[in-house]
Design a protein around this nucleic acid. Structure first.
Length: 171
DNA sequence: CGGACGATCCCCT
DNA sequence: GGGGATCGTCCGC
């Protein structure tokens, strides 16, 4: 099964990004964010969802990119079997928990090195090349309370698989 | 297609 | 003990 990423969000490290899981320092949950680039950081949220990040900073300095959405380009049957609730194909990986679910990513995949071709989940350049800068949009991150104004969400223009923007919801 | 709402549990304070 | 880097269901348009 293959997903072409269409939307991501960047998160920073200790003391520099109030929206980041690493903002308050290293803990058992965010440990992977302080590890080597290219490894998978997964977290469990809202009592039921897994979300996947790619660690992207030097060792000891937390940084990660949350994989927010993508287009399923191969293996639709496998994706659909994991995501029976999807009404249309474009919803299979539209949203961070949906994308993780479509790819079969959960706590068992934590820490995996995504640039190893033999890994269960791998990260590779787009088959059709990288989109030009004129196609990359950016804006506020979704669902965060702190640093909501930082324009660290990036998505591709005119892609139906990009998730809907929702401000953080009050309790 | 989109807005409202409730589910559900692990980690940190 | 509180709250979350969300989603599925329900329902109206």
């Amino acid at each position: 099964m293959t997903v072409r990423l269409t939307e991501v969000e960047a998160y920073g490290g200790v003391g520099e990004d109030p929206a980041s899981h690493a903002h308050r320092g290293r803990t058992a949950r965010n440990e992977a964010m302080f590890g080597p680039s290219g490894c998978l950081y997964v977290y469990f949220t809202y009592g039921m969802h897994w979300c996947a990040n790619v660690v992207c900073g030097p060792v000891g300095q937390a940084a990660a990119v949350l994989l927010r959405a993508g287009e399923v380009t191969a293996g639709h049957a496998a994706a659909r079997s994991r995501r029976p609730a999807a009404r249309r194909d474009r919803e299979l990986a539209r949203g961070p928990a949906r994308l993780a679910r479509a790819l079969g990513i959960d706590g068992d995949a934590a820490g995996a090195y995504l640039l190893d071709p033999a890994a269960a989940v791998t990260l590779a350049p787009p088959a059709d090349g990288f989109p030009g800068p004129d196609r990359v949009c950016h804006g506020p991150r979704v669902g965060v309370r702190g640093a909501a104004e930082a324009p660290w969400r990036f998505w591709l223009a005119d892609e139906p698989t990009v998730s809907a923007y929702r401000p953080a919801r009050r309790r």
